[in-house]
Lab assay of single mutants.
Amino acid sequence: QWIQSKREDIVNQMTEACLNQSLDALLSRDLIMKEDYELVSTKPTRTSKVRQLLDTTDIQGEEFAKVIVQKLKDNKQMGLQ
């Protein structure tokens, strides 16, 4: 999976804004449970939030991952090649 192969780059480069947009999009599509949303959003640092989101992606699967990839594209953060 692309996200896993780029995990380190995503953790380093995903902005707080992109992270929040991803969470909002996942929530609005019922792809993330409120508990998982809280787990991510209550982490103390941006990098720990991104790591938690990516860990959740492993469990949730492809549809979940597609939303995150789309948000990275929207925010022009796909220089993660």
Rank of each mutant, 00 (worst) to 15 (best):
Q1L: 07
Q1W: 13
W2C: 04
R7W: 03
E8N: 02
E8R: 08
E8M: 09
D9M: 08
D9K: 06
D9W: 12
D9F: 06
D9L: 11
I10C: 02
V11Y: 01
N12H: 12
Q13L: 05
Q13H: 06
T15Q: 12
T15S: 15
T15I: 00
T15L: 02
E16T: 11
E16F: 05
E16Y: 04
E16M: 11
C18W: 05
C18E: 14
C18D: 01
C18R: 04
L19H: 01
L19Q: 08
N20G: 11
Q21D: 15
Q21C: 06
Q21V: 07
S22R: 00
S22N: 02
D24L: 04
A25L: 09
A25M: 10
A25Y: 02
A25T: 11
L27E: 14
S28T: 11
R29Y: 08
L31C: 03
L31Q: 03
L31G: 01
I32T: 04
I32M: 11
K34H: 05
K34T: 05
K34Q: 14
E35N: 05
E35I: 00
E35L: 04
E35Y: 05
D36S: 05
D36G: 05
Y37W: 10
Y37G: 05
Y37I: 07
Y37F: 08
Y37L: 11
E38P: 00
E38Y: 10
E38L: 13
E38V: 10
L39R: 14
L39G: 08
L39W: 01
V40H: 15
S41D: 06
T42R: 14
K43G: 06
K43D: 00
K43L: 14
P44V: 10
T45H: 04
T45W: 04
T45G: 08
T45F: 03
R46V: 13
R46P: 05
T47Y: 04
T47L: 08
T47N: 09
K49M: 12
V50A: 01
V50F: 00
R51D: 05
R51T: 10
R51A: 12
R51K: 13
Q52W: 13
Q52R: 04
Q52C: 10
L53T: 07
L54R: 06
L54D: 06
L54F: 00
L54Q: 03
D55W: 06
T56P: 04
T56R: 05
T56E: 08
D58F: 14
D58P: 15
I59A: 00
Q60E: 13
Q60P: 09
Q60T: 07
Q60G: 13
G61A: 07
G61Y: 09
G61C: 12
E62K: 01
E63L: 03
F64R: 06
F64P: 10
F64M: 13
F64K: 04
A65R: 03
A65T: 01
K66R: 11
K66H: 06
V67R: 01
I68F: 00
I68N: 06
I68S: 06
V69L: 09
V69T: 10
Q70R: 06
Q70N: 01
K71E: 10
K71A: 14
K71S: 14
L72F: 13
L72M: 15
K73I: 10
D74H: 14
D74L: 08
N75M: 11
N75Y: 09
N75T: 10
N75E: 14
K76Q: 13
K76P: 08
K76Y: 09
